[in-house]
Simulated assay, not measured.
Amino acid sequence: MESPSASPWVFLYTLANRFEADVLSDVLEKNGVPYLVRSFVETAYDGLFVPQRGWGQILVPAEFLSTARKLVASVLESLTSPKLYESVEELDPSLWDQLARRDPQNVCRRAAVTWNAAHQSYRIPFLAGAFTCVPAQKTILPEQGLVWPMVDFQTGLVLLHYLLEAQDLPLSGRWISEKDIPSGHQFFTGPHALPLDALVRHVADAPHRLAETSKALGGVPVPSADMGFVFVVLPRVPVQCLYWHGDGEFPPSLSIRFDATIAKHLPALDTIWALVNVFVRHWTAALKQA
């Protein structure tokens, strides 16, 4: 929303992520405050600036600064507990509405899930367990077999988008990195870099724990890197994890590969990023339980 006045643009707030940008932009617009969002992620220097300056900034005309500060302070205070986008109840209601209108047979064919007509629910396999999704009740429940039986915002986001967007396609058999996904080279940096460092730190002194915990997640060993595993995170979304022990010159490292069809099933890069976050939480939980 651009300013119709000649007042100079001034800094208002440093944004931590895109979700925060969307929320604050919405409240400013609803209150008639012109604004500009300057995202560092969209620049050629995002890898340098994002860690130091945040995801981006909001600017407003100088004459609106006082009003805008009060609006932002009010929003941030209301988000203190619970934090922004942590609860499954914060999911866009339109996602539930779209799913409720879909033909269950069509959803099951595309997403390779099952429909329980008696309970009006979908069963969605996830790693070694499953989730139950009840569209009419706007509810997602964990089933047995999940090492991290929590349903947060990102879990719900991934599952609903998967049910709505997955395609009835065979796997390509070609593994790609997140940077090979269309627009992934720009997106998966800074705050959207895949959160794999914590996993590496968990197993740096005992890498055999990766092999042990992969079984709890349904992982199948593959002859790649120093250790490799393939996990069926969702029925049409396998993920390959490759681990290198490192040596005197290079530290231990972990990378993730996706089947080249990933963008067909989860077209939004945000959703793929959320998928990896949820997967990492499950693997971290498995490591802690081992």
Rank of each mutant, 00 (worst) to 15 (best):
A286M: 04
F126G: 04
Y122K: 03
F131C: 02
S39N: 10
Q289K: 15
A117T: 13
E20T: 12
P191H: 13
T155P: 08
A274T: 08
D97E: 12
L91Y: 01
F187M: 06
K70G: 13
V10F: 08
G184K: 01
A44P: 07
E178Q: 12
W9C: 00
W244V: 08
N106K: 12
Q167C: 09
V233T: 07
H245I: 12
W148I: 02
Q137C: 05
Y13P: 06
L91C: 08
G218L: 02
F250N: 14
L65A: 09
F187H: 03
I124P: 06
P191C: 03
K179V: 11
S78D: 12
A100G: 08
Y162K: 05
F49L: 15
E89W: 02
D270Q: 13
W115D: 07
G56D: 02
Y45P: 01
T114Q: 10
L24T: 08
V222S: 03
V147C: 10
H202Q: 14
Q186A: 07
P221V: 09
V75D: 04
W283D: 01
A204R: 14
S66R: 08
Q240R: 14
Q240C: 10
E2C: 03
G219C: 09
K30M: 07
E165K: 11
K179T: 15
T213L: 00
E90G: 11
N116Y: 06
D226Q: 10
H282I: 13
L127E: 00
V147E: 00
V239Y: 05
A204T: 15
V222M: 03
F229C: 12
R201E: 12
A204E: 07
S183H: 14
F131A: 05
E86S: 14
D259I: 15
R102E: 13
A21H: 04
L146W: 10
T114V: 09
P170A: 09
K30N: 08
W55K: 06
L254Y: 01
G248S: 12
G190P: 03
E249Y: 04
F258L: 06
A193T: 15
Y162H: 04
L141I: 14
G129L: 06
Y35M: 09
L210I: 14
A16K: 14
A62H: 12
P251S: 11
E165S: 10
A204C: 04
G218Q: 07
L76D: 04
Q289V: 06
F40Q: 02
S253E: 11
L171Q: 12
A286L: 02
R69E: 15
E89Q: 09
W273N: 09
A118H: 08
A16I: 10
S255G: 08
F258A: 01
L217Q: 04
G156T: 02
K70E: 15
T189V: 15
V222D: 01
N116F: 05
D97S: 13
S253Y: 02
V88A: 15
E2I: 10
V203R: 00
L71D: 06
T139H: 06
D152M: 05
E42N: 14
D247Q: 11
T139K: 11
G219L: 01
T114G: 09
R201K: 13
A204F: 00
P170K: 14
H185G: 10
K138Y: 00
V88D: 08
H192F: 12
L287T: 15
P135N: 06
W175F: 04
A286D: 01
K83N: 04
S224L: 13
T14P: 04
S5V: 11
P182Q: 10
N116R: 11
F250K: 15
L24M: 08
A274K: 05
L254V: 01
